[in-house]
């Protein structure tokens, strides 16, 4: 493994690990929420994962705009990396929400506006990642996914309103984390958890962006293997008759 490709554990990674351990201790030590049972401790995972999903997709949006404005591939790498992390955390958030729903109402899926919205958001960014996979050429990929990164987030606003209004028309049991009494220790544990997850996001983003840079270098190496220009790949036919040199 060459020096350039070796994974470097940075200070950020250590801070991320320590803060997650810290958050875990807070979550376990926080008082039991009587109305919800032990399952309510999912709050300390659920809220931060949702927050990270929104943060990650907002970063993708901003990085997409910055790419189109500056045409620097670095911004495209940030956009792609952040979307990928966002999809992972959105999936965790949905699974967490389903487990919580099962524990509270004995059903996995409640058609709660937030849950539905989160699922729609997941599909939007799965599409975004699928698009990134099918375009090999780095600049075309950057330009097109930047457009999708912008359109996707802008359109999520009406998606949000429509789903929320649709749910208010068919009101059933809607669960909101703020229904829980957020007194001192619980609120503190939640804030610690949100902070810890955010550091984890930053650490993951840093590694993923670095990886995107390595992928680009590998792509460049594969695309131009022969000489200074691509045309060098074509040499005189080697068929053994004429004056062509073998």
């Amino acid at each position: 493994m060459s020096d350039a490709t070796r994974t470097r554990i940075g200070a950020l990674d250590i801070v991320a690990t320590v803060s997650v351990v810290f958050a875990l201790v807070f979550a376990i030590a926080s008082p039991r929420i009587e109305s919800q049972g032990e399952a309510a401790r999912l709050l300390f995972v659920h809220v931060p994962t949702i927050w990270l999903a929104y943060l990650a997709f907002a970063v993708t949006f901003v990085a997409s705009i910055l790419y189109l404005a500056t045409r620097r591939l670095r911004w495209d790498h940030v956009a792609g990396a952040s979307a990928e992390i966002g999809v992972v955390f959105t999936t965790v958030a949905i699974i967490g929400g389903m487990v919580w729903g099962k524990a509270t109402w004995n059903v996995y899926w409640t058609w709660d506006a937030r849950l539905t919205l989160t699922a729609i958001m997941l599909f939007v960014y799965i599409g975004y990642l699928a698009l990134r996979r099918v375009i090999a050429e780095p600049e075309a990929r950057a330009r097109r996914s930047a457009v999708l990164g912008i359109v996707g987030l802008v359109q999520l606003i009406p998606v949000h309103f429509s789903v929320t209004w649709w749910r208010t028309l068919h009101q059933t049991n809607t669960f909101r984390p703020r229904d829980i009494q957020m007194d001192g220790p619980i609120l503190a544990a939640l804030l610690v958890s949100v902070a810890a997850f955010t550091v984890v996001y930053a650490a993951l983003l840093r590694h993923r962006v670095r990886l995107e840079g390595l992928e680009l270098a590998a792509y460049a190496a594969a695309a131009a293997p022969v000489g200074p220009v691509a045309g060098d790949a074509v040499s005189a036919p080697n068929i053994g008759n004429s004056g062509a040199q073998p």
Binding site: I120, M121, F123, V124, I126, G127, A130, L131, L148, V151, G152, Q155, L156, P158, V159, F161, S162, V163
Partner: peptide, 9 residues
């Protein structure tokens, strides 16, 4: 896949 989720509104 790109259009459907965004067309929900």
């Amino acid at each position: 896949l790109l259009v459907t989720p965004l067309a929900i509104p």
